[in-house]
Each structure stands twice: as structure tokens, then as C-alpha cells.
Design a protein around this nucleic acid. Structure first.
Length: 190
DNA sequence: TATGAGATCAACT
DNA sequence: GTTGATCTCATAC
């Protein structure tokens, strides 16, 4: 097994469309619990679907900060969703984590989620945060140290792209990236 | 398999 | 007052 490489902040200091596919297959642990990233979506400040579209607010302030930090927001008033901020400071782009293949800390994830089926633990942005225990208080934390632990994938993987999920604006842009054939996606790719 | 409602809150009109 | 980067459960086909 090759020694995994811990992702430095510089990894995120690139175009969001370069970072997003490179995250597929990477491993994400949060307080020692997590798995392999199998699905993400890219958002950019010129993108009408992005929270940063239209300028900084209290909620999206982290997106306008430096890359390599976590932007966490509440979705539909109920769920937490986590993003990785990308590109040079100020461009307000981010990658939304949508699904993981669970590998580590399965008992903790099953307990938090209240389900036993591995495929239901992290197959969606809200589920993923619940399984890992990520909440709003973790917004703004750096991604290159605890409680986060991100490692680059060891080899190239087949990546598929498609339109993003659950949005109404710019819904046709193919800015969703996934691991081809994964059983752990929030939804299959067409 | 597919569609619909409810939960619950911050941003925005 | 309305909308949304969601999820779960219920009911219908």
C-alpha cells in the first residue's frame, strides 16, 4: 500500500473544477470517522445556484475567505451540508460533499444515522454530515488538521459528470462529479 | 417506482 | 411571506 498523502491547503488553491474531480476517491475522516469521497458538486460565485452568488452574507462569509476551509450551512432548516472552499481567496467557490463510501467508524455512523445499511449512511449531503457529526459549529475550520483528515486517492479512478441535484437555477450545468459505478451515490448518474 | 407533505430556518423579495 | 445545494415517511400506481 502506498503511503497516503495528506492534502495541503494548496490542493484547494486551484480552480474548483480542477479540485472537484480530484476529490473523488480521496479519503475523508472527521474525528476518525468517514470514508472515500464518491460524489461532489462545484459551485462558483458567478453561478446563480451558488450561495456566494450576489455577494457576501453572514452565512456564506467563509466562502469569501481563503481556500482550504470548511463552509457549513443549514439546508431547508433541517440538515447540515459541508463544502470545501476553493480557488484563491475571494473567488467564493466551493465543492459540496454529497456522498461517501463509508470505510471507517461504521458503528459511530450507524448510531448517529439510526440505520444499519451502509449505503444509507452517507449517500447525500445531509446524511453525510449527520453520519460524521459535522454541524454548523465546525464551519470555518481548516481542512489540513484535526478534526479533519483528508488524504489524496492512491490511483486514477473512472469519474463521471452530470447535472447537479436539487437545484432550480443553472440546473443544466454538468458540475456534479462522481465515482463511476459506485453503490454509494446519492443518485445514479445517467 | 413515483409523487407529496412535513420539518424548520436564514436569506431575500 | 416565500424559497431552498434535503431527508424521511406515507400513500398511490
Amino acid at each position: 500500500m502506498p503511503t497516503p498523502t495528506l492534502l495541503p491547503k494548496a490542493f484547494f488553491n486551484r480552480d474548483v473544477h480542477a479540485v472537484a474531480p480530484d476529490l473523488i476517491g480521496a479519503s475523508l475522516l472527521f474525528n476518525g470517522v468517514g470514508g472515500l469521497i464518491v460524489e461532489v458538486e462545484a459551485y462558483h460565485h458567478t453561478d446563480p445556484a451558488a450561495h456566494s452568488y450576489g455577494g457576501p452574507t453572514v452565512r456564506n462569509a467563509v466562502m469569501f475567505g481563503p481556500p482550504g476551509y470548511a463552509y457549513v450551512y443549514r439546508s431547508y432548516g433541517v440538515h447540515w451540508c459541508v463544502n470545501f472552499v476553493c480557488e484563491p481567496k475571494g473567488s467564493a467557490s466551493a465543492v459540496l460533499l454529497r456522498a461517501l463510501q463509508p470505510t471507517t467508524g461504521l458503528p459511530a455512523m450507524r448510531r448517529r444515522r439510526g440505520v444499519a445499511d451502509d449505503r444509507l449512511l452517507c449517500s447525500g449531503p445531509g446524511k453525510l454530515c449527520e453520519a460524521l457529526g459535522v454541524t454548523g459549529k465546525h464551519g470555518g475550520l481548516p481542512l489540513d488538521r484535526a478534526p479533519f483528515a483528508l488524504h489524496a486517492r492512491a490511483e486514477d479512478l473512472p469519474i463521471v459528470v452530470g447535472p447537479r441535484i436539487g437545484i432550480t437555477k443553472a440546473a443544466d450545468l454538468p458540475w456534479r462529479y462522481g465515482l463511476a459505478g459506485s453503490r454509494y451515490l446519492s443518485k445514479p448518474f445517467r
